[in-house]
């Protein structure tokens, strides 16, 4: 197979985690549309009203984080004191959904912002902390809520507007994960942090296209440095590139000599029945990949259906101000290599 020459690697960028940090347990929560989607019955719990008994959408998102983390603790019968660090993030200004949602737990708190790549970023950081022996058990929590995101990034909820076919729907979902230094589950073997890529796209209604070149950049660097290719994996899954981004990545990778067709999927395409639910190019948001990982991909790794998986969290780094000022939307894509191990 012809593989186009790419920038020469001078430094090692892949971080190899040699002490087998492992994602042992996970939990996910969603809203009305997420429940209706193909993964709906995999949700640990959901709320038909998306309000989670709170009177504002921001509080509802925080409540999702609180409940999903509580559920994670109860799954393993653990107390907050059994967790060494909380790594959490969301889309709302200054990550308040995370900080308020997890306020009631007395665990050292590490707030991160990677836009929609937050789940992958959190798992990568948790894996590194466990691998280095700094912590024994890290919890990673991320969320997004359609209503709070819509208010912050677009229009009021009841404003009547038409969405373009390339636009994506912020998932109302949250996921929580335990990353531990030992145990069984989905092992984190390698981590590759991506660079920010400005592909010149300024259209906030086509974030898939804005992020796709960042995904290609991270993927190609990984393949070249590790000497692998798409054929080395059972599944390569990006976070929330949606229909547009998925198509662009597939085409760009093929041009570079990597045929992704049989192994490549995107979490944004997994959450909804796009035609029936009128979801245009698919799902997005921090909760999107967290939900898809917890509901479908991680269980399939643990069961052995997938042996080697590349999970690429994709983030579009825009703000209300940057969009109004006409700035391009940079993308960032972080890679986590996960694997199944027998017994």
């Amino acid at each position: 197979m012809r593989r186009a020459s790419y920038r020469k690697m001078t430094i090692t960028m892949i971080i190899k985690l040699k002490n087998s940090p492992v994602i042992t347990c996970f939990s996910c929560v969603g809203g009305k549309e997420e429940r209706k989607g193909p993964l709906g019955d995999k949700l640990d719990f959901y709320d038909e009203t998306d309000r989670f008994d709170k009177n504002t959408w921001e509080k509802a998102e925080s409540e999702m984080q609180r409940r999903v983390f509580n559920h994670l603790l109860s799954k393993r019968d653990l107390k907050a004191t059994d967790v060494d660090i909380l790594i959490a993030g969301d889309l709302i200004n200054q990550c308040t959904s995370s900080s308020y949602g997890l306020l009631s737990f007395d665990i050292p708190y590490f707030g991160i912002y990677g836009a929609c790549s937050t789940a992958a970023l959190g798992l990568a950081l948790g894996g590194i902390l466990c691998d280095g022996g700094y912590v024994k058990r890290a919890a990673v929590v991320t969320s997004s809520h359609f209503c709070s995101a819509e208010r912050q990034f677009r229009f009021p909820l009841e404003y009547g507007s038409q969405r373009t076919p390339t636009s994506q729907h912020t998932a109302t979902a949250a996921g929580a994960f335990f990353v531990e230094s030992s145990g069984s589950g989905a092992y984190i073997d390698e981590v590759l942090f991506g660079i920010t890529v400005d592909a010149g796209i300024a259209d906030a209604n086509n974030m898939g296209a804005a992020m796709a070149p960042a995904a290609v950049d991270t993927l190609v660097k990984y393949f070249r440095e590790s000497g692998t290719g798409p054929e080395s994996f059972d599944l390569i899954v990006t976070g929330d590139l949606g229909y547009e981004g998925h198509r662009i990545v597939t085409e760009m990778m093929l041009q570079l000599g990597y045929d992704m067709k049989n192994v490549y999927n995107d979490c944004g395409l997994m959450l909804y029945d796009r035609q029936k639910q009128d979801m245009h190019a698919g799902a997005s948001g921090c909760g999107c990949s967290a939900f898809a990982m917890a509901a479908s991909i991680l269980p399939d790794i643990i069961s052995g259906k997938y042996k080697n998986v590349l999970f690429l969290g994709s983030g579009a780094l825009l703000s209300q101000a940057s969009v109004l000022q006409g700035e391009n939307i940079p993308g960032v894509v972080h890679l986590v290599k996960l694997s199944h191990r027998e017994g």
Binding site: R7, Q162, T164, P165, T166, I195, V197, D198, A199, G200, I201, N206, A209, P213, A214, V216, D217, V220, Y243, E244, R247, I248, E251, A281, N328
Partner: peptide
């Protein structure tokens, strides 16, 4: 990665799903 923004922008515009 250096992306040719102009070329990429044209490609995206050409291939993106259009409003009916």
């Amino acid at each position: 990665m250096s992306v040719n923004k102009e070329k990429y922008g044209k490609y995206v515009e050409k291939t993106a799903k259009k409003s009916p």
